[in-house]
Design a protein around this nucleic acid. Structure first.
Length: 867
RNA sequence: GGGCUCGUGGUCUAGGGGUUAUGACGUCUCCUUGACAUGGAGGAGGUCGCCGGUUCAAAUCCGGCCGAGCCCACCA
């Protein structure tokens, strides 16, 4: 077998890893812990390319750390909370949250989500993920929700939680409040309606442009710009609202854009966030024109009970009929929409639980400075977000399938009583409060609100480090080693986690943050199922293997988005095949674990020293999460130094030095690849090394160390490689087979160090006779002198250009002889300068007995060949 | 509108003041050699987005412009 068959081989080792619990996190181990705050995969079923690459990148870290002696904490985990599941369940069963008792509704959601878990576990398995099932968690489980609730109770008792009656983003379809971070903007074109407002007591009118005439019922004031000369006289006067006939004042406010619409703004309580700013500024009384169902309230008069959209259409029709609608024009707008169900979001005043956030801006920014961000520039995203925050965090949602807010409220006085920590996990809609009645004697009613899912998610470092479960472990593990995530949720997951770690533990949650980008469609645009350009990774894995897909993943540098490139996957498969065949070649030569012998040849020292350099650079790149660079260095070495050159040199050797070198370099190389391509690495290890090594899996073996640092051998080796490559190239040019024998090869020049490698040369290029000499009975003819700019520039500065021009005018042969006799003196810019040998590099042609021979020039040396 | 990232052969990409600009995929020529033809040796193919500036020297640093993507804000 000379081809690597990914499908059967990958399955084989996946089974071995699973059966052998290779990736077990050992709580009792004294080894240093490396903990990964793995993103729990959302329970939605289908695996997309972004998952496949993102989780592969995290796996690279886990495997690398494991091989470096860490007790790696890398949990298998799933996120099973929140409204996306609810939305799907409601669609599937054609219900809303009001149609079923809470318990039954919850059960449907839970069953729906759980139905995906096995499939998702399988996905991780076929990707070769090294997550540990022994530290499995699911965010909807009571053991996880308990942590969310305890952390809430602590914050509640610290006075950081309050119930507020502020306007919040409200999704009428989900019937719940939303955080700013949950609101999306969809592009849309709407009608901008120009409506007449009569000036009270006169026949004058002004027109107001609005996209939302249905909100006229809560119109409180009309604002104009203070510099607007035409309207200034109206400030302070009353206008009459159309349809409702209410009197509203005209005010002047600099935030009004005189160029938009009519330059007059009607301010309603409450339409959007801009309205809210004015409402706060002018202390306007809040009125609720739209209710939680997205329907108009009694305030809307004849439109009561209509949906917002119906009311808008009806209001426009009425305005038109009564001649108050001046005109309409198209207006592009961004409609705020619920990120889960895409229904338009309203801005409503509904009592909600808030967590104090604005007071912690400084602390969060300071904590961000304490952590290492990879890449560094992603920290700016967090800073921008924190600096732009204007509201505290709305913690509560009026949903069902999520962690309940562990609070009871007094029916009479509204006093809130939180659960005790010991009670958690608790469901106030079913369980009794910690005290039988309120201090005022009133009855305590269980809160039906649940938490924003980010409240659960942002507690993952607390859950992972055994907070409130095992204080010893928490002490050892908190803060965690690293958080991997994508850049889109910096403002949510990263931000909330940092915030809560500060509030709960006065600490950073993790030391490192690794931010990866998105995988885009091959044309660089985002993948969307609505566009139909989503790429399914499963067929790719089936065709090329998981290692090939992982190879693609490691070529995606951190922080930036990447268009999918199938050719990288193809390259990955080829690399698997190359590695597999290196094993096939070398494996049979190994009979034991060899010790380093005394008599290493130059070529051995060369590859060992180069290998050591690569170990150092690859290790450095792993430490800074630069997988693309790590892979490039490792791959380039393995393919183009080890395979193309060293293996060619040792093909005919069976000595201990060759065995030792090949064994050491190949094993170490495979280890460097192991975090990226775990299957092929394990396959080579098991087939060719396991018999001589003690580790039961390459993934439990030690990361390679440097062996030798011999710069002299490296430069000799590079020359050797160049000489051999040159001769092979020469053969290729003459269409000769690479193993064609040559009568005589003469290497001439500063190359006596190649004497160490005579055998390597003759064996590799198949030369019957080899001469290595410093000079030969040949004449050299200098055909040109090349300026060495890197030396000329610093030495002669501004004159360098003229010097180069002057030298180019000289006859090369004569100039070369002048150079040998002390230098060339040139008049440049009125000055006389002398250019010596170091500044010019002669290019020579060789003549043997006055006749040009077949020569190849390699750097400063020449190779003469007699076929 | 703001922030971030990026414009390098046909496509994708590395590099990031100093000889001839890296590699992959594609393409063309040649080579079955005892690990691999999913291989090897070579070739063709580039004004490093545009315009200025700094410098002896700019693909690289600085400024401006043009273009792309992501994130954020958002107009009644």
């Amino acid at each position: 077998m000379s081809q690597y068959e990914s499908a059967s081989i990958e399955r084989r080792w996946q089974k071995m890893w699973k059966d052998g619990s290779i990736y077990h996190f050992d709580k009792d181990s004294d080894a240093p812990i490396f903990s990964i705050d793995n993103p729990p995969r959302y329970a939605s079923g289908s695996l997309h390319l972004g998952h496949a690459t993102g989780y592969s990148m995290i796996d690279f870290v886990a495997r690398y750390r494991r091989m470096n002696g860490y007790n790696v904490f890398f949990p298998l985990c799933f996120d099973v909370n929140g409204t996306p599941v609810e939305v799907k369940v409601e669609k599937k069963h054609n219900i809303t949250k009001l149609d079923l008792p809470r318990n039954e509704y919850r059960k449907l959601c839970s069953e729906y989500a759980d139905s995906f878990i096995d499939e998702m576990k399988h996905h991780f398995e076929i990707l070769g993920e090294s997550m540990d099932p022994s530290i499995y968690y699911q965010t909807d489980a009571p053991y996880y929700r308990r942590i969310t609730q305890i952390s809430f109770v602590k914050l509640f008792n610290k006075g950081l939680v309050y119930k507020g009656n502020f306007p919040v983003n409200w999704c009428p379809r989900c019937m719940t409040a939303l955080a700013d971070a949950e609101v999306e903007y969809d592009k849309n074109v709407t009608k901008l309606n120009y409506i007449k407002f009569m000036v009270d007591g006169t026949d004058d009118h002004i027109s107001v442009a609005t996209t939302r005439p249905e909100l006229l019922c809560t119109c409180k004031v009309v604002a104009v710009h203070p510099d607007d000369k035409e309207k200034r006289h109206l400030v302070g006067k009353d206008l009459v609202t159309p349809l409702y006939g209410r009197k509203v004042k005209v005010i002047a406010d600099p935030k009004v854009d005189p160029a938009f619409g009519t330059g007059n703004v009607m301010i309603c309580t409450i339409g959007d966030k801009d309205d809210l700013e004015w409402v706060m500024k002018y202390k306007l009384e809040m009125e609720k024109g739209i209710d939680e169902f997205g329907k108009m309230t009694a305030l809307a008069g004849k439109y009561e009970g209509m949906t917002v959209k119906e009311a808008r259409e009806a209001a426009i029709a009425d305005l038109r009929e009564s001649g108050l609608l001046v005109r309409q024009e198209d207006s592009p707008q961004n409609v705020s929409a619920c990120w889960r169900c895409h229904a338009p979001v309203e801005f409503l005043q509904v009592p909600q639980w808030f967590l104090k956030t604005l007071d912690f801006k400084k602390q969060v920014l300071a904590r961000a400075e304490e952590m290492n961000w990879y890449p560094e520039f992603m920290k700016i995203r967090l800073q921008d977000w924190v600096n732009s925050l204007e509201w505290d965090w709305v913690l509560s949602r009026q949903r069902i399938f999520a962690t309940p807010v562990p609070v009871w409220e007094c029916e009479d006085c509204g006093h809130a009583v939180a659960a005790t920590e010991e009670m958690c996990y608790v469901d106030p809609t079913e369980d009794s409060p910690p005290i039988s009645k309120c201090e005022c004697g009133g009855k305590l009613i269980g809160c039906t609100d649940v938490f924003d899912t980010w409240m659960d998610s942002s507690g993952s470092p607390l859950y992972n480090t055994f907070w409130e479960r095992d204080s010893e472990m928490f002490k050892r593990m908190f803060p965690m080693s690293m958080r991997p995530q994508s850049h889109d949720i910096i403002r949510t997951w990263a931000f909330y986690t940092i915030l809560r770690s500060e509030q709960i533990a006065s600490s950073i949650p993790w030391k490192d943050v690794m931010i990866h980008g998105f995988i885009m469609a091959p044309d660089g645009t985002p993948m969307h199922s609505s566009v139909g350009n989503v790429i399914d990774p499963i067929p790719i894995i089936n065709e090329y293997g998981a290692d090939a897909l992982r190879y693609y993943a490691c070529n995606c540098s951190m922080g930036i988005d990447h268009a999918f490139r199938e050719k990288d996957v193809i390259r990955g498969r080829k690399l698997c095949n190359k590695l597999f065949n290196l094993g096939q070649f070398a494996g049979p030569r190994f009979d034991r674990r060899p010790e380093m012998p005394e008599n290493l040849r130059t070529s051995d020292k060369w590859i060992l020293s180069r290998y050591s350099d690569v170990v150092t650079s690859v290790t450095g790149h792993f430490e800074s999460y630069q997988f693309d660079k790590a892979m490039r260095d490792a791959e380039n070495f393995i393919w183009h130094e080890l395979a193309d050159h060293y293996v060619e040199m040792v093909k005919s050797r069976r000595d201990d030095a060759a065995k030792y070198t090949l064994y050491t370099v190949l094993l170490g190389s495979v280890k460097m690849i192991a975090p990226f391509m775990p299957h092929i690495a394990e396959d080579i290890y098991q087939n060719h090394f396991a018999a001589h090594e003690k580790d039961r899996s390459i993934h439990l073996s030690k990361w390679p160390a440097t062996v030798l640092n011999d710069k002299k051998a490296e430069s000799t080796g590079d020359l050797l490689k160049d000489v051999i490559a040159a001769v092979r190239g020469w053969k290729s040019e003459r269409k000769m087979p690479l193993n064609a024998e040559l009568n005589m090869v003469e290497i001439i020049g500063d190359c006596l160090m190649l004497n160490d490698a005579r055998v390597d040369i003759t064996e590799t290029i198949k030369a019957k006779n080899l001469e290595i000499v410093e000079t030969a009975d040949i004449t050299e003819e200098v055909i040109s002198l090349k300026p060495v700019h890197s030396k000329l520039g610093p030495a002669f500065k501004g004159l360098a250009k003229m010097i180069v021009a002057e030298i180019a005018k000289l006859d090369p042969a004569k100039a070369a002889s002048m150079l040998r006799n002390g230098g060339i003196t040139i008049e440049a810019d009125g000055q006389s300068v002398t250019v010596t040998e170091e500044f010019l590099e002669p290019e020579k042609r060789l003549m043997l007995n006055g006749k040009q021979v077949e020569t190849i020039q390699v750097g400063g040396i020449l190779i003469a060949i007699e076929p």
